[in-house]
Simulated scan of single mutants.
Amino acid sequence: MSIRKEEARSMSTATPGNGNGGPLEGAVVAVAGAGGPAGHAALLRLAEAGAVVVGCDSDPERLAQGVDAARDAHGGATVIGDTVDLLNLEETREWAQRTEKEFGRVDGLVHLVGGWRGSATFAETDLADWDVLEKLLIRTVQHTSLAFEGPLNRSGNGRFLLISAAGASKPTAPNAAYAAAKSAAEAWTLALADAFRKTGGEEGPHAAAAILIVKALVHDAMRAERPNAKFAGFTDVKELAEAIIGTWSKPTQEVNGNRLWLTPQP
């Protein structure tokens, strides 16, 4: 396991929002799947908001690009990249424990691990696609949620944020495996939200699990490759990053267990 890190600030007594660097000053936020375009955008925006950001990805080169870009854009920001196999529960638990031990808290886990497989028709669905998607879209959610539930509860204002797709609520024939996997990941996340609710008792939840739903994501490179495309209904990765930040500005009880639609609800 490799760790890329710049000298870290002590976070043992920090509380989100009580500094001058941004709305998440003092928060520690982990980003799973930080090597892709959405992950890069999240690293940038979280660093800008003042958070200590701990990203992980299975691709160390893509992860390093995002970490370096976030550091360069926001001088003085603490942005770390860990190469973690999220399909390994023990390795995922070690990542969560190491992060909490080093910085004294974990205030967020943003789940951006993605992937897509589809077919021309329902009858042509290849069940090998399900095998791939089950690992990427479900198993990684299971492992990160199990690993980070405790730290997020201890934060007092934690967020577990799953990025999902509108297709999970209205499956289409060619996307049977993808929609089913996304739907399962959403159900698992809502079960985590119920756990947060029950742990909080009469005081209300101390952490929130929520689902941010898009039709699909778009970024600058996609637009450059397809200059004539409209990308109707797509959410820009920068807009997604802004929505992620915004969940901390709402009361935990209002966020917990909800689907937050960034595209029209089908």
Rank of each mutant, 00 (worst) to 15 (best):
E90N: 15
T92Q: 08
W95K: 00
Q97C: 03
R98D: 10
R98T: 10
T99A: 03
T99Y: 03
E100A: 10
K101G: 03
K101I: 02
E102H: 06
R105V: 01
V106F: 01
V106P: 01
V106D: 00
D107M: 00
D107Q: 07
L109Y: 04
L109K: 06
L109V: 08
L109M: 08
V110G: 02
V110H: 07
V110P: 03
H111C: 01
H111A: 00
G114R: 13
G115T: 07
G115P: 05
G115W: 09
W116P: 00
W116M: 12
W116I: 08
W116R: 11
R117G: 02
R117I: 02
R117D: 01
G118F: 14
G118H: 14
G118V: 12
S119T: 09
A120M: 07
A120K: 11
T121G: 02
F122C: 05
F122D: 05
A123I: 00
A123R: 12
E124Q: 08
T125Y: 06
D126S: 09
L127R: 13
A128Q: 13
D129A: 11
D129M: 07
D129W: 09
W130V: 05
W130F: 05
W130T: 07
D131R: 14
D131I: 11
D131P: 06
V132P: 03
V132K: 12
L133I: 12
L133Q: 14
E134K: 15
E134I: 13
E134L: 14
E134H: 15
L136H: 06
I138C: 12
I138A: 08
R139Q: 13
R139G: 03
R139C: 00
T140F: 01
V141D: 03
Q142D: 10
Q142G: 10
Q142Y: 13
H143I: 05
T144D: 02
S145P: 12
S145A: 15
F148K: 09
E149Y: 14
G150P: 02
G150R: 12
P151K: 01
L152A: 04
R154F: 05
S155R: 06
G156W: 08
G156L: 04
G156R: 13
G156D: 08
N157H: 07
G158L: 02
G158S: 06
G158E: 04
G158C: 05
R159L: 02
R159T: 07
L161K: 09
L162Y: 08
L162A: 06
L162V: 07
L162R: 14
I163K: 08
S164K: 15
A165C: 04
A165L: 08
A165P: 02
A166N: 15
A166T: 15
G167V: 14
A168T: 07
S169I: 13
S169C: 15
K170H: 15
K170Q: 15
K170I: 15
K170R: 15
P171W: 14
A173C: 05
A173S: 11
A173V: 04
A173F: 07
A173I: 04
P174I: 05
N175C: 01
N175P: 00
N175S: 09
N175T: 08
N175L: 01
A176I: 11
A176R: 12
A177C: 15
A177K: 14
A177Y: 10
Y178R: 13
A179K: 10
A179R: 10
A180P: 01
A180F: 03
A180Q: 04
